[in-house]
Design a protein around this nucleic acid. Structure first.
Lengths: 139, 139
DNA sequence: AATAAGATGCAACTTTGTTGCAAAATATTT
DNA sequence: AAATATTTTGCAACAAAGTTGCATCTTATT
């Protein structure tokens, strides 16, 4: 774990700092996605709000995390599975958002099916978000 | 057009007011989606910021418009094709976001394919967002 | 250990979204 | 057509979310 964190930072030529370690730890510690607010809350005492913003920005640029589209106005971030190339990443898995617990998880085992677009449209990236009830909340 | 606007308002038991007419006019005047910012800009001189928020909220509740998930932090709204029932609407079409012109359109003719989720997950709503280049920007 | 490069915190600010309330506009009743 | 009831609007004030510049501290490099 500790190992993994350093690995990610080294691989992306990032200096290892407190906030970066802590935020990566959060991501590795759960398999869901994190809203900006979540991250801020769980690090708020140790790091400045601005630092959280900047750290996430760096991770995004490096392709360490990616954003998940939402209909409410909260960006959600999730770790990219294998390292995506900076900026453009190709995670073609489905995201599941639970209505009850609000958790977002990446369903890595479900692949997004191919679709054919109308003439003239060229797809670069496809996102699929399923909203519903997760196994944990079902009972 | 004028006709259509009044129709929508009447059908949803909404009193016809300036802002509601204007905002519906915006939606009908183009077939893409509008970010909140767009709407505000194009009505800003005539209506208060707060009124725009409240009008959109009303339209959402009535199922006249729906939100489109985005990765940037901007909510986008689009007209529902046939009137959806209040709150729950069933638009199972694909949304396309152009990387170049930033336009968002509803691809009504493309239906979201069925997918099978892992055990325990129950789907309520499925969203599909394709990012790429639109026909207009291609040449 | 000294230096250069990079990250952080603070303060100030902008932008976005929300709420209460009085005034104005719309719909309804007589 | 006027009077009343119901909604909607704008304003002001506020809360939350996001950004920027700069001095200070930390990390990496020599």
């Amino acid at each position: 774990m500790e190992e993994a964190i350093l690995n990610i930072l080294k691989r992306n030529q990032l200096s290892v700092t407190g906030s970066r370690q802590r935020i990566l730890e959060l991501f590795l510690g759960q398999q869901g996605a994190l809203a900006h607010g979540d991250i801020e809350k769980r690090t708020g005492e140790k790091f400045d709000r601005v630092t959280v913003y900047r750290t996430l920005q760096v991770f995004l640029n490096k392709g360490i995390i990616h954003t998940i589209p939402t209909t409410d106005n909260s960006i959600r971030y999730a770790l990219c599975k294998d390292d995506c190339e900076a900026g453009h990443h190709h995670d073609n898995h489905v995201h599941f958002v639970c209505e009850q617990c609000e958790n977002t998880v990446c369903l890595d085992e479900v692949t997004i099916p191919e679709i054919s677009l109308p003439k003239g449209y060229e797809a670069r990236q496809v996102e699929m978000i399923v909203t519903g009830i997760c196994p944990a909340c079902k009972r």
